[in-house]
């Protein structure tokens, strides 16, 4: 049976940019389902295309810089470039590009969503700012709900 892939990504040494890995850690701790895999990553890389293509759903969790700090937003994602100008792709990808890569390379891009949390502080440092820390439980709950809703 295909699985749900939860990918929390960001730089944990850049304060609120670490919200993705923080949510991933909480989800991994709470979720015992065998068909759920949780990854905590610094950034998205092309090698993820293969496991993504094998999942029935992917949930990305990332920090956002636009909006009121602590705001949680959920976005449905479709494969394709985030912007027209893809740029000189070096070491990281956005989720849509990764889905596109999964589709092109392996013939399948699963249903996907991005859960984002607006950060307040992206300076050097470990730990989350207060408002983002307060948003953590609700963000985890959002992800839990999405996992539950995707059960076959």
């Amino acid at each position: 049976m295909s699985r749900v892939l939860v990918i929390g990504y960001g730089n944990v040494l850049r304060t609120d940019d670490g919200i993705g890995p923080a949510v991933a850690a909480c989800v991994a701790q709470r979720c015992a389902a065998a068909d759920v895999e949780v990854l905590s990553l610094h950034q998205l890389l092309p090698e993820l295309a293969e496991p993504i293509s094998q999942a029935r759903q992917v949930v990305f969790i990332d920090a956002s810089i636009d909006g009121v700090p602590g705001t949680i937003a959920c976005w449905r994602l479709l494969p394709g470039p985030e912007t027209e100008a893809a740029g000189p792709l070096v070491h990281h990808l956005d989720p849509q590009r990764l889905l596109e890569l999964a589709q092109l390379l392996y013939g399948h891009a699963p249903a996907a969503a991005l859960v984002s949390v607006v950060g307040q502080d992206f300076s050097l440092g470990e730990g989350l700012s207060e408002c983002v820390r307060h948003a953590l439980p609700d963000t985890v709950a959002h992800v839990d709900t999405m996992i539950a809703a995707s059960s076959p």
Binding site: A49, E50, G87, P88, E100
Partner: peptide, 25 residues
């Protein structure tokens, strides 16, 4: 330059792109 990346390779030579990604993997 907008095409000069792994997606450009993918369009032209998908086997090479897949092979390169899997080799790094």
């Amino acid at each position: 330059p907008a095409k000069r990346n792994i997606f450009g390779i993918l369009e032209r030579e998908p086997e090479m792109a897949r092979g390169g990604i899997r080799l790094r993997q």
